[in-house]
Amino acid sequence: MPSETPQAEVGPTGCPHRSGPHSAKGSLEKGSPEDKEAKEPLWIRPDAPSRCTWQLGRPASESPHHHTAPAKSPKILPDILKKIGDTPMVRINKIGKKFGLKCELLAKCEFFNAGGSVKDRISLRMIEDAERDGTLKPGDTIIEPTSGNTGIGLALAAAVRGYRCIIVMPEKMSSEKVDVLRALGAEIVRTPTNARFDSPESHVGVAWRLKNEIPNSHILDQYRNASNPLAHYDTTADEILQQCDGKLDMLVASVGTGGTITGIARKLKEKCPGCRIIGVDPEGSILAEPEELNQTEQTTYEVEGIGYDFIPTVLDRTVVDKWFKSNDEEAFTFARMLIAQEGLLCGGSAGSTVAVAVKAAQELQEGQRCVVILPDSVRNYMTKFLSDRWMLQKGFLKEEDLTEKKPWWWHLRVQELGLSAPLTVLPTITCGHTIEILREKGFDQAPVVDEAGVILGMVTLGNMLSSLLAGKVQPSDQVGKVIYKQFKQIRLTDTLGRLSHILEMDHFALVV
Rank of each mutant, 00 (worst) to 15 (best):
residue 2 P to W: 08
residue 5 T to M: 02
residue 7 Q to P: 10
residue 7 Q to L: 06
residue 8 A to R: 10
residue 9 E to R: 08
residue 15 C to R: 04
residue 17 H to P: 08
residue 17 H to D: 04
residue 18 R to T: 15
residue 18 R to I: 15
residue 19 S to A: 13
residue 20 G to Y: 02
residue 20 G to I: 10
residue 23 S to V: 02
residue 25 K to S: 09
residue 25 K to N: 13
residue 27 S to D: 15
residue 31 G to Y: 02
residue 32 S to I: 08
residue 33 P to V: 10
residue 33 P to C: 07
residue 35 D to V: 11
residue 36 K to Y: 09
residue 38 A to I: 02
residue 39 K to R: 14
residue 45 R to E: 10
residue 46 P to R: 04
residue 50 S to C: 02
residue 58 R to A: 15
residue 58 R to I: 10
residue 66 H to F: 10
residue 67 H to M: 05
residue 74 P to S: 11
residue 75 K to E: 05
residue 77 L to I: 04
residue 79 D to V: 12
residue 81 L to H: 06
residue 86 D to L: 02
residue 87 T to I: 15
residue 87 T to D: 02
residue 88 P to I: 09
residue 88 P to Y: 04
residue 90 V to A: 07
residue 94 K to W: 10
residue 94 K to M: 12
residue 97 K to F: 12
residue 98 K to I: 14
residue 99 F to C: 11
residue 100 G to S: 07
residue 104 E to C: 11
residue 104 E to W: 06
residue 105 L to N: 04
residue 110 E to S: 07
residue 110 E to H: 04
residue 112 F to A: 07
residue 113 N to F: 02
residue 113 N to L: 02
residue 114 A to H: 09
residue 114 A to S: 14
residue 119 K to G: 06
residue 121 R to F: 05
residue 122 I to R: 02
residue 123 S to C: 05
residue 123 S to L: 02
residue 125 R to F: 10
residue 128 E to M: 13
residue 128 E to G: 04
residue 130 A to W: 02
residue 135 T to E: 02
residue 135 T to I: 02
residue 135 T to D: 02
residue 137 K to S: 05
residue 138 P to V: 08
residue 141 T to I: 15
residue 141 T to M: 11
residue 142 I to V: 11
residue 142 I to E: 02
residue 144 E to I: 07
residue 144 E to Y: 05
residue 145 P to Y: 02
residue 149 N to E: 05
residue 149 N to T: 02
residue 154 L to E: 05
residue 154 L to R: 02
residue 155 A to I: 02
residue 155 A to K: 02
residue 156 L to I: 05
residue 160 V to T: 02
residue 160 V to W: 02
residue 160 V to A: 15
residue 164 R to M: 02
residue 165 C to I: 06
residue 167 I to T: 10
residue 168 V to L: 07
residue 170 P to G: 07
residue 172 K to D: 04
residue 173 M to L: 15
residue 177 K to F: 02
residue 179 D to C: 11
residue 182 R to C: 09
residue 184 L to V: 02
residue 185 G to I: 04
residue 185 G to V: 06
residue 186 A to E: 02
residue 190 R to N: 08
residue 190 R to D: 02
residue 192 P to Y: 07
residue 192 P to W: 02
residue 198 D to Y: 07
residue 199 S to Y: 07
residue 199 S to E: 05
residue 201 E to M: 04
residue 206 V to D: 04
residue 207 A to Q: 02
residue 207 A to L: 02
residue 209 R to A: 08
residue 211 K to D: 05
residue 214 I to S: 02
residue 214 I to T: 02
residue 215 P to H: 15
residue 215 P to I: 05
residue 217 S to V: 02
residue 220 L to G: 06
residue 221 D to K: 02
residue 224 R to A: 08
residue 226 A to L: 07
residue 228 N to M: 02
residue 228 N to P: 05
residue 230 L to S: 02
residue 231 A to P: 12
residue 232 H to F: 02
residue 233 Y to F: 10
residue 234 D to C: 02
residue 235 T to A: 09
residue 238 D to Q: 02
residue 243 Q to L: 10
residue 243 Q to R: 11
residue 250 M to W: 02
residue 250 M to P: 02
residue 251 L to G: 02
residue 254 S to G: 06
residue 255 V to L: 02
residue 256 G to L: 04
residue 257 T to C: 02
residue 258 G to R: 02
residue 259 G to I: 06
residue 260 T to K: 02
residue 261 I to M: 09
residue 262 T to Q: 02
residue 262 T to I: 02
residue 262 T to E: 02
residue 263 G to I: 02
residue 270 E to C: 02
residue 272 C to E: 02
residue 275 C to S: 14
residue 275 C to A: 15
